[in-house]
Amino acid sequence: MRAKLSSRERIIRAARKAFAERGHDGVSMSEIAQMAGVKKALIYYYFPSKEDLFYEVWQYSIDELEDHVFSETSDENVYVSKLKRILRSYIDFITSKNEIKKIMDQERANLSREDNESWKRVRDRYEALKEKLSSAINDAKAAQEISKDVDPDSAADLILNGFSITEDPDGLESIREIIWRGLFSNSGE
């Protein structure tokens, strides 16, 4: 498998694994190079800093999450069905992509960092995902398919953050049900 992946791809995958295991601050570029089977200088050829590498891992991970969650719903016009699919896809993704879930959970606190341009880009990418989710919720609200009292931004925050409480499938299903009921309270559903 290693021969089929580009060096850049191997670096990103090794970094994702390392960041998931020990967080951004807990891993060195030397460790990532060793895991990827490349020289540390090659990492710096592709990524000028650890923050730039982390941003690339984050971007790659969020793209994968976004594609998984929204790809099957892009043509869906019934907003209730669309939201159900989004929630189920999100749970499916975070249970099957444990590394990405760990990175998101561990680094959520760093999203407020202002000390580095890469961290601002990490936050902006997360906010773009949240906005896409909020927009789907707002569409359902505008179509009067969910409660008029739902704040789309808060609901999107709850979805992105609420599932980090547990990894237990039953617990995740309970959280999904709580979110679902909140979306439909006072809506006739």
Rank of each mutant, 00 (worst) to 15 (best):
A156N: 03
N186Q: 12
F163S: 06
W180T: 10
I12A: 01
L42D: 03
E21L: 13
Q59R: 15
Q34N: 06
D75T: 13
S185M: 14
Y44R: 13
A128L: 13
S30A: 08
Y44M: 14
D105T: 13
A109R: 11
Y79M: 13
Q144H: 12
I12F: 03
K50A: 11
G162E: 10
E167D: 14
S185A: 14
I137V: 12
D92M: 01
L53P: 07
K82V: 01
S118R: 11
I43T: 01
V69P: 01
S96T: 15
F163V: 09
S61L: 08
W180P: 05
A156S: 11
M35L: 12
Y46M: 04
N186R: 12
S164N: 10
S30K: 06
V57N: 10
A15K: 08
S118Y: 09
Y79H: 15
G26K: 03
D168F: 04
Q106A: 11
F163R: 10
R13P: 00
R123I: 02
K120I: 15
E51P: 07
L133C: 00
L160I: 07
E64L: 11
I146L: 04
I178F: 13
F47P: 04
S7M: 00
V122R: 07
F93E: 05
I100K: 03
A143N: 06
Q106Y: 13
Y60L: 01
D170Q: 13
Y44F: 15
L42G: 00
P169R: 10
G26P: 06
R176S: 14
W58G: 02
E56V: 07
G37R: 02
M1S: 11
A15E: 10
S112I: 13
D168S: 12
P48S: 14
K97D: 10
K82R: 15
G188H: 05
